[in-house]
Computed example of a mutant assay.
Amino acid sequence: MRLGLATPVVLQQPGVASPWEATAGPEQLARIAAAADELGYTHLTCAEHVAVPAEAADSRGTVYWDPLATLSFLAAHTRRIRLATSVLVLGYHHPLAIAKSYGTLDRLSGGRVILGVGVGSLAEEFALLGAQWQDRGAAADDAMVALRAAWGRREVDGMVVEPHAGSTELTMWVGGRTLRSLRRAVTLGTGWAPFGLAPDTVAEYLRRQQPPAGFEVVLSPGRALDPLGDAAAAERALSRLRAAGATIATCPIRATDAGHYCDQLAELQTIAGAL
């Protein structure tokens, strides 16, 4: 099981984000991304919400940096680590617009983009953007098919797309928290990145819908880990994810500042290597 990074600062969930993140900026963010890159983390993440209803702020938080702008910035400060949307809401975008914008990022970053995608869960945000809430699952399926057909191709339906991704091989992880999301991922994607599911539930879903070889199961412990302060708890959390079927663990980390965060990254990699 490999490690990915739930990027701090760019998403600040109540009960998960550390206080220092509220005042952190690009310099701290770039420092952490570069450290994760050097330590061999597989990917870093950035979520998507244009706006969150005020009544949902206590549970979801309100800080969501734009993923295209953020990942483009981080691409310039890293060399190898992959750049994952976690997740893009498919109903907010035309598939060809995603193929163009993130294909450009893929070209700029040397082929490091991972498209994490989902169907969306905020009806208010759909309404705000004029997006179609009803039947959004079926629309997401169609969008994923269209993305696969367009990714890395110069000509799509008689239209020229320049620039585009450097390869037609699209790494696409599906978010969600249902068995249907896993089925969608197995059928149309290359990985599954659920949220809010207990490890036992993940394991049960994977028994019911066994993925193919090479398929990524990207799980999170759901809480921030403190490898230097409580190594045993971090080890238990990673072990539970591995037992549930994770091939990659995307971990939020508790820290007091950016320097401490980088130290925590190194210690977590040591713990994972010993499992």
Rank of each mutant, 00 (worst) to 15 (best):
A139Y: 06
A150V: 08
A69F: 05
L96F: 13
A84Q: 11
I114G: 03
L90M: 10
G158S: 06
S86F: 08
A150P: 10
L68F: 13
E48P: 02
G118C: 04
A69L: 09
R107E: 12
T45I: 01
A57W: 13
A47Q: 11
H94R: 15
R148K: 14
R79Q: 15
E55P: 06
I32P: 00
V156A: 09
A139K: 12
V160Q: 15
I98T: 08
A139S: 10
T62Q: 12
D66P: 00
G166K: 02
L128P: 04
G40I: 04
G137P: 09
G152D: 07
A150C: 11
D37G: 03
A84K: 03
G91M: 03
R80G: 08
G158V: 02
A35C: 11
I81S: 00
C46L: 02
T42L: 11
R60E: 12
A99R: 03
T85F: 01
P53Y: 07
E125K: 05
A149T: 13
I98N: 03
R153S: 06
W65D: 06
V113I: 10
Q28Y: 07
V52A: 04
G111T: 01
E155T: 14
R60D: 11
T78L: 02
P95L: 02
V160K: 12
F126E: 05
A33G: 08
G61S: 09
L96E: 10
L71P: 00
D37I: 00
G40S: 05
A69Y: 07
